[in-house]
Design a protein around this nucleic acid. Structure first.
Lengths: 201, 201
DNA sequence: TAGATTGTTAATCGATTAACAATC
DNA sequence: TAGATTGTTAATCGATTAACAATC
């Protein structure tokens, strides 16, 4: 049975909780659920999807083993190189962001307005094709202005990018085999404000 | 009937599409759905939740009226002041981000390591209580290092913050009446990488 | 008119939750 | 043993989709 996206999205949170409980040999689904405000049944079901060994009645799951299992499932060890396209403030902040997991490595940026970003080089967009091909890149972080978002996206698709983390406010039109993950900061904050107002009604 | 979170989250996208179709007087649910890869039924249901007037058979919805309705529903006109706590790279990039909607205004930042950010001032954390009270702030963007995330979160809750946009990798423990919206960039990118690998299996 | 579109009611689908026997 | 926990099967819940009459 394929894992659901909902389950997949909870795995990183489980991993964090497990890692934070340094002194425990066993961790129960009840404890994890409590810390994340989820139901223990849900946690158990999720873990059943990725765990290679069974939990122990009365004790819970072996913490180290479970961490290994989740990391193996998420393929944390296998590093993928990604690029940032658009070296504005957000793009630069992401290029310098230190907390990405080990499975991801931002190797360079692209922008027609050349800048240097710590130890990461920024190349002009006309170098995109050759560098993406040579370095075998399939994922791009898109942080260009809204006006050029679709145009640059089309370019990314043309050079063979298959996954786009989209920080622009534009809904990108892409072929079926390309995955876009939208990270519309403007919409996110607007919705948080709205939700909070609703709470207070 | 209360609007569902799923519907709420699609509204900003509808708004963007509607605004981009500058020359149309009427816009159909079919067209919006097509542009966003959704079903037209879903779009219609969503719009029914927020639209004050009915759509017209054969034509669709009056574009300008619909924009007004969605904006009124999201309360885009009513500006809320928010603060950034943690003026590192991400925090600074957000403070200078120009694309937030009109309903949000980042008025200042807080960090013990004082910096200046364009025209926005950064204050030390011990000024938080008095400034949050005086300015009547209820929302904070949390961009501090993971190590101090829960501690600063507790402080935010103590001074009366009710909504936290959490950019740290830590799952925050908050009272029931505080809304946390997690924006874990590290988990997001890791999951995009994983999804893409899954596609290729 | 024919055909595209709307809005609503019913059906489907998938995720979450409940129930419960098995285990240590 | 008693009680906490697991894993699984069934029930519930909510969101999406299908069906279809009404409209212009």
């Amino acid at each position: 049975m394929a894992i659901s996206l909902s389950t997949l999205q909870r795995l990183p949170a489980y991993l964090r909780i497990l890692k934070s409980l340094e002194n425990e040999e066993y961790v129960s689904s009840t404890l994890i659920a409590q810390k994340l405000n989820l139901s223990n049944i849900q946690v158990r079901k999720d873990l059943a999807c990725v765990s290679t060994s069974e939990g122990k009645a009365r004790l819970g799951f072996n913490r180290e083993k479970l961490i290994e299992d989740i990391e193996a499932f998420l393929e944390i060890d296998n590093t993928t190189d990604v690029i940032v396209v658009g070296a504005g403030r957000i793009g630069q902040a992401l290029m310098q962001y230190k907390n990405f997991e080990n499975n991801v490595n931002i190797i360079m940026g692209f922008d027609n307005d050349l800048r240097k970003c710590d130890n990461k080089k920024v190349f002009p967009l006309d170098k995109l094709q050759s560098l993406v091909n040579r370095m075998n890149i399939h994922i791009a972080i898109l942080t260009v202005p809204a006006e050029s978002a679709q145009e640059v996206c089309d370019l990314l698709v043309r050079v063979g990018i298959k996954g786009i983390w989209n920080f622009t406010t534009v809904h990108l039109d892409v072929p079926e085999d390309v995955i876009v993950k939208n990270e519309d900061l403007s919409a996110s904050l607007m919705l948080l404000v709205k939700q909070l107002r609703k709470e207070n009604e």
